[in-house]
């Protein structure tokens, strides 16, 4: 009788762990931290992301400013991105599920998304593929990623993010633009992912109509 690899490996494990004891896991590390937008900005800038801060009504203007500064000609967005944020005088192509990597490839291509969570202490933005975030290739192939962060998406520390995220969704944790230090440890921004990350941090405005 031949034993399957699965059964054999499991049998080896069982005989190996006869003497192993399972310790209690001490959970006295910090369970989280207060959100601190100034810290988030500091961390993002440290990663050399471009940061804009604006009121909700200023989002479209900030996108135009960022797109013009970066020389973006073609703008894409996932379904579910709030139409009010999209600049009225630019064409933004919404992904209908048929866009290919080739369609999105190019130094003049930018994508606009929001995120699921932004973590202040590490300057990390997490996308979960939900509305306004889209399929993973959408935020990967273009050379420019413009990400809108809303006040309610901002959390203090890594454990805070874990409590909000659903692991069954495909998650992408982004901390600054793509980078490598593989050659003489010299940091080079932009290898395969977007070489330019623009983060638009939307300020919390008490009341709703206090546009600048």
């Amino acid at each position: 009788m031949t034993i399957s690899a699965r059964d054999e490996v499991l049998a080896r494990i069982r005989s190996a762990i006869v003497t192993a004891v399972s310790p209690d896991v001490p959970r006295d590390y910090r369970a989280g931290a207060a959100a601190d937008v100034e810290l988030l900005v500091d961390r993002l800038v440290d990663y050399r992301a471009i940061v804009h801060r604006c009121a909700p009504a200023g989002i479209a203007g900030a996108i135009i400013e960022a797109a013009d500064a970066a020389g973006i000609d073609r703008l894409f967005a996932p379904p579910g991105l709030d139409p009010a944020w999209q600049p009225s005088d630019r064409h933004v192509s919404i992904d209908d599920g048929t866009l290919t990597a080739t369609d999105l490839d190019g130094n003049d291509v930018g994508v606009i998304t929001t995120c699921s969570v932004a973590i202040c202490e590490t300057g990390t933005i997490v996308l979960d593929g939900g509305p306004g975030q889209g399929r993973r290739l959408l935020t990967l192939v273009p050379d420019h990623h413009i990400c809108i962060v809303l006040p309610e998406q901002v959390v203090g520390a890594v454990p805070d993010a874990f409590r909000r995220l659903d692991p069954r969704r495909p998650l992408t944790w982004i901390s600054g633009p793509s980078a490598t230090s593989d050659i003489e440890l010299k940091r080079v921004e932009g290898v395969h992912g977007p070489r330019h990350l623009v983060v638009i941090i939307v300020e919390h405005v008490p009341g709703s109509n206090s546009a600048p």
């Binding site: 961390r43 990663y47 599920g97 973590i119 202490e121 590490t122 300057g123 990390t124 593929g129 399929r135 993973r136 290739l137 692991p167 069954r168 969704r169 495909p170 998650l171 992408t172 944790w173 982004i174 901390s175 600054g176 633009p177 793509s178 980078a179 992912g193």
Partner: peptide
């Protein structure tokens, strides 16, 4: 503080 990219996935996500 955090590496530029971390990906997590669970099985297959239809359409993505």
């Amino acid at each position: 503080r955090m590496n530029p990219y971390t990906s997590t996935w669970t099985g297959v996500t239809p359409g993505d």
